[in-house]
């Protein structure tokens, strides 16, 4: 996962129905860029049959009885 560019952010925000101008897109890119970089080592590596609900299974399994 790579840090999105202001141009990409402008496009994604437009598709989301909340258009932003170039200045805001640049500011957003700077703000959330580190999150994309921090998650880059995980993105694209997860096994096929892993669902978000797995979290609840792990949480319940480790819960204090």
């Amino acid at each position: 996962m790579t840090r999105p560019t202001p141009k990409e952010i402008k496009a994604v925000a437009g598709v989301a129905g909340v258009p932003v101008d170039a200045e805001v897109a640049t500011r957003i890119a700077n703000s959330i860029g580190p999150a994309f970089e921090g998650f880059a080592a995980i993105a694209g590596t997860l096994p096929f049959d892993l669902e978000p609900a797995r979290f609840l299974v792990v949480q319940a399994a480790k819960a204090v009885k």
Partner: peptide
């Protein structure tokens, strides 16, 4: 506004990783 720029796939990857991370 920051959240508008995050693709659905990226969000769901972050959600899918919660179980293994925990």
């Amino acid at each position: 506004q920051n959240g508008l720029a995050i693709p659905g796939v990226s969000y769901l990857e972050a959600m899918r990783w919660r179980g293994p991370a925990l």
